[in-house]
Amino acid sequence: MSQYRISVLLIAMTVLLSGCDKSAQDPNVMFSEKHKDPIAELAVTDKPDHSKLGYQQTFYVPIYSDIYSDSENQKVLLSATLSIRNTTLKNPLYINKIDYYNTNGDFVKSYIDSPIKLPPMATLNYIIEKEDDSGGSGANFIIDVEGVDDTVKPVIEAIMIGNFSNKGFAFSTEGTPVAP
């Protein structure tokens, strides 16, 4: 085999094997400032003292993994961004749960294993890829948050984008407070 063919083969193998690292392909890692998982970056090293936290709320956030087009009832896959924003200038927001459910109400995935701490005025954005249709058209998140008092109220939204044929579209939903 010629030197040229061996070089091409080695380059091709390197490219293919480097594509096997899931974290390198994760858009949440690729698009973050530090190229690290944004949820892992916010992990709490010391557990919050719940007795000092006077605000606690559970939010329901609708997500659409797919919608149907008016043309032949085709399913159009969507990418979504979950956005959790701490609206206070001084106090952190603790996020205790980010759970994902599908259209049938079945639990799909938990995005955190332990509480995370969102600094004042910070935002956590998390991308659900277009190819992830595990949630279906009625997917949703249940998010539990805590703060020092009721001035620590987050803004929680989801933004979905997609395209069909030569048309692009985007829409958003808001988190709704619900009973835990």
Rank of each mutant, 00 (worst) to 15 (best):
G105R: 10
Y111L: 15
L93P: 12
Y101L: 06
I112N: 09
N86S: 08
Y111W: 14
I116M: 10
L89H: 09
F107D: 08
Y94N: 02
Y94T: 00
I116W: 04
P115Y: 13
N102G: 07
K117M: 11
N96V: 00
K90R: 11
I84Y: 02
G105I: 06
P115M: 09
L89G: 02
R85V: 15
I95P: 10
N91P: 00
D106K: 12
D106I: 11
K109S: 10
I84D: 03
G105S: 05
F107W: 14
N91K: 15
D99V: 01
L89R: 08
Y111M: 12
I112C: 13
Y111H: 14
G105V: 07
N86L: 09
T87W: 01
T88A: 07
I112W: 08
I116F: 06
P92W: 04
L89V: 11
P115V: 12
S114E: 11
I84L: 04
L93F: 06
D113P: 00
P115R: 12
T87Y: 00
T103G: 07
I116H: 06
L93N: 08
N91L: 14
D99C: 01
I98E: 01
N86K: 03
K109P: 07
R85E: 15
T87R: 12
K109G: 05
L89N: 12
I98Q: 01
